[in-house]
Amino acid sequence: MDQIQAGHRSAHPLPIRIMHWIGAAAVICMFLSGWAIYNASPSLPFTFPWGLTLGGWLAGGIAWHISVMWVLFADGLAYLAYGTISGHFWRDLRPTGPRILLRDLGDTLRFRLPHRLGHYNAVQRLLYTAVILCICMAVLTGLSIWKPVQLAWLARLFGGYPIARNIHLAMMFCIIAFLAVHLLLVAIYPRTLVSMIASTKAEEER
């Protein structure tokens, strides 16, 4: 059975759990305050409902955005360092190759994925790697439009301020798309939520 516990490795070590929830709260705050900033000067033909924004008005939204930005920045750097040094990235997020990816993708679309705590299938590896890259890209484009003069080299790297701003916006939509899938799967497999809160042992891989 899947439920046999494998040794004493934790499904999610404590540092990962702490950084996950700090990052999750920070990303939500960045969404809500970012929408308040976007609404002041929309570059696409829509605005976000004011009831969903954080900060009340443009300056309040900016205050939240550039405050929480440092929380996300520090949390992200700590996670990247931990993920590299602890082997989390290599063990859990390393790409599997196209054959296994296609097999797991087929299983996912037929909802035939056994979620084994502490193990990452090819689709999970791809999605988690993608969202980590999207958040990194959102932070970098965000820095470039925060200080477009002092960090002009960074803005230039993204093709200039207006394009950097649109990439920043596109990353937001990508992260929301990830979040929709992520929350749907957590709703289907609630024990994954428990394993991200309480210390839970990793299950055996079949």
Partner: peptide, 21 residues
């Protein structure tokens, strides 16, 4: 408090030689 920290980062980044595009 965060905005004051932000101000310190901004002044550390600031270089009067760099001109706006």
């Amino acid at each position: 408090a965060m905005l004051r920290f932000d101000d310190r980062v901004q002044s550390a980044l600031y270089n009067p030689q760099r001109l706006a595009e």
